[in-house]
Design a protein around this nucleic acid. Structure first.
Lengths: 264, 264
DNA sequence: TCCTGTATTCGTCATACTATTTTTGAATTA
DNA sequence: TAATTCAAAAATAGTATGACGAATACAGGA
């Protein structure tokens, strides 16, 4: 009531956005989300390395200028994603990366370019080569007309992107996500997030070369055509060709994939 | 345990008052976890169908006899898993199943036998047929000696299970999880949970037939041998044979997989 | 060496207040 | 009168605060 905007001078520092400035309606939208994101970024960027202990909850409250409720719920979210593990007296520790939910879209976003660590880019490419041709085959016999239309729409957006590499890549990623959905296999669809992340960091570069774009356009069109004709073999073949170009374009980025065959 | 006890009036532990009987060491272990599990079960069992709104938080507090803190953090966990979505004034609604994180071990556990709905069993089998042979191939060239030893240990447990179908199935599932891990592909490893769930509900039946068990034992041994020899082709072949028997055994259970080609 | 007590930290509870959004209903207009 | 607009109200999740309980690592004594 009567908006006493003056109170709460609690300096909510640490958050990436707006500063103190007691501007007009300094509405604070989703404090929760901001804290979760800040902590998630700090963990994924190894600012809090694996095995390390986070500041205790009351300290985090001070650091971010929020209540313990918010901090705890944020920690709960991150724990659910496999990043953290809290225990009384010992504190909140960062889990081993093997427990991270790598298929979580937010984690992948927080990792950003670090996705190249951990062999993730290579793993994702292997996964695509394993799954996508099969998904294309399934889509050939199961895709709805609506889904095929959506695929074509994505293709059109690719074609019309012109010199906008960003837009081209976005449409390209959407194409692959629709394809996975059109496979009508729920497990495949769960892979959308990680393939999305992998594509975003690999397509962007290869799509900068105009020749590659034309080639990609042609192959994508072939795939849509194969789906329309319900031609499983052709769909699979088109997907294979697509991935061959991906392997070729990513070869330099994957230089020296490490073979950590030995136990740590 | 597995107490169905889906009753909402469940006898929560230790009400604030009337604490009359201080039971043995039953204390109250993990109130949080209990509430989360109860809500998760109620959602996965469609007691709260997709699109329905849950009771408001204060009501849930009464129903489970816990504080709002616990209820909220439980809801937060379930929301992170994609089951729920909360908004002020409107309440907490159950998300569409397409948003559920099907690779989450807990969700799969909560679904229990309902895993047969939604075509999940079929999807999992398709995923196995797509991924496992490739994983076996990768494992042939990347598995550590320790991992191969672990695989053999699992195989030994299968062999020595005798008439204990439960133990045999458990070892069988472990075998496949180790195999995925040995592929040294982090994305493949994330599929462990769902393959685990799929196997638990399919192997158990097929392993009841003694002939199938002997056959399975032989094929699993062949796979281990192939890994030891670093023979990719043989590993892939063994995996394929394994899955062929799985398809054969599951055929009756998958009767009439529905082809929902149309958009719902 | 083993045991016990203590300090620290997360886990839970309780209450109050804020923010957001749906709903309602009155005022306005065609 | 009927439809429209807009502002006030009601309801619910979101946040803040403070207190206490429970679990456990650690230190000190037997």
């Amino acid at each position: 009531m009567t908006g006493p905007a003056t109170g709460h001078e609690a300096d909510r520092t640490g958050l990436p956005d707006v500063g103190g400035k007691d501007a007009p309606q300094a509405r604070r939208p989703r404090v929760q989300k901001n804290v979760t994101t800040a902590l998630g970024l700090d963990i994924c960027s190894e600012r809090y390395p694996v095995g390390s202990v986070l500041p205790r909850e009351s300290d985090l409250c001070e650091m971010y200028g929020v209540s313990r409720t918010v901090v705890r719920e944020s920690l709960k979210i991150l724990a659910t994603k496999g990043l953290l593990h809290s225990r009384p007296r010992v504190g909140t520790v960062v889990c081993d990366k093997a427990e991270w939910n790598l298929l979580d879209a937010q984690i992948l976003e927080w990792m950003g370019p670090r996705i190249q660590d951990l062999d993730l880019l290579g793993c994702i490419l292997e996964t695509r080569r394993t799954v996508e041709p099969v998904a294309a085959e399934f889509a050939a016999e199961r895709a709805s007309v609506q889904e095929i239309a959506d695929l074509e729409a994505a293709w059109t957006r690719m074609r019309d992107a012109g010199t906008d590499t960003e837009a081209f890549t976005r449409a390209d990623v959407q194409f692959h996500e629709i394809l996975l959905k059109a496979s009508h296999n729920q497990v495949f669809r769960q892979l959308s997030s990680i393939i999305h992340a992998g594509l975003m960091y690999s397509l962007h570069r290869s799509n900068e070369v105009i020749d590659h774009r034309d080639e990609a356009l042609a192959i994508h069109r072939d795939l849509v055509e194969a789906l329309r004709l319900r031609d499983k073999a052709a769909a699979r073949a088109a997907s294979h060709r697509m991935l061959d170009t991906a392997v070729r374009d990513l070869a330099p980025a994957l230089r020296g994939r490490r073979q950590d065959a030995d136990g740590a």
